[in-house]
Design a protein around this nucleic acid. Sequence first.
DNA 1: CTATATTTTCAGTACATTCTGAAAGGATCG
DNA 2: CGATCCTTTCAGAATGTACTGAAAATATAG
Lengths: 181, 181
Amino acid sequence: MTQAPIDSARSLFVRRWGEMAASWGVSRTMAEIHALLFLAPHPLCTDDVMEQLEVSRGSASTNLRQLVNWGLVSRNHRRNDRKEYFEADRDVWQMFETILRERRRREVQPMVETIERCLEMVEPARKNGVAEANEEAEVLRKRLTDLQEFCEIMNNLFNLVTRSGRDQVEPIAKRLTSLVE
Amino acid sequence: MTQAPIDSARSLFVRRWGEMAASWGVSRTMAEIHALLFLAPHPLCTDDVMEQLEVSRGSASTNLRQLVNWGLVSRNHRRNDRKEYFEADRDVWQMFETILRERRRREVQPMVETIERCLEMVEPARKNGVAEANEEAEVLRKRLTDLQEFCEIMNNLFNLVTRSGRDQVEPIAKRLTSLVE
DNA sequence: CTATATTTTCAGTACATTCTGAAAGGATCG
DNA sequence: CGATCCTTTCAGAATGTACTGAAAATATAG
């Protein structure tokens, strides 16, 4: 027997989570599965996902694997059952950290490396050639180093926060937060 | 006359910035234009953008307007010139704040409202019906309130940081940062 | 006010991403 | 080891997003 209001709430949440994720560059279905698992009271198997989200087996399989790769979902087995059951990490802070770390690794790191490379390309051009060219090189260098410095600060802040651990950070954040209200 | 190494650096940066943005749900061209303007030593007009990125007039116009809407780029005029010239905000901290604020408004806020709605739907179901159903409702409520609390903390932190202003935050961030090294 | 320069819009098209469904591949049981 | 159950893979299809180019709209100069 299904509980109508509970199911409606779940389905609304799942849909919206999918929409939000889509605008952050995460495929809708992957996010919907993540939301479904996040809300589920117990682990779900592939068929549960297929049924509840009306997606194909291929899509369910692929997206579940990606979620496992991201570290947001874990696989579980049961005795006397060949199926795999999937369970989402429910610790919101941990989830956030996982997502940030993965995105940094996949998307920010290459950008940071590129900035470094660009600076190496610009450096030799700085005092070589006409004055106008030098000035242009100087401007470019400034823009790149500003960005680089910002990235370093953000990177270190992230490291600091994650190394301190959630138990240290959460109360501080809450305390700071009370300053705003 | 074009300076080969400078141009190469610029073009490399622009391309990578576009790639990164694409995986964050921002269209490649819009991000490339943003990068181009960010690095440019002076404002550019639509034709400059079309030429340097090899995109159509329609695309340049649409994407420039979007950048202006985001508050990342401003339009300028010149005397005796009908063209519009576009200039990016070069303050990296300001840029970051603008992006976060816009994304919160466009993408996070609707999610927060949805969580609220979901909680309203679940509430009446809590002590109404069989024990099993109550338990499910309780679990769902827990998940939603955990997420809600997290969103509130993040929201307040963001407000705190942006109200304090960049001049207050940057040195603190740098100081904290030095703890990591 | 007309001529001209510039921007915006949008229908059609190109491109990229994601899904489907079935076949192949693995794993586990008796 | 064969039968069964489950997962993965992938070619083709569906879908969605973003671009193009030209026509319409707008703005400025004379």
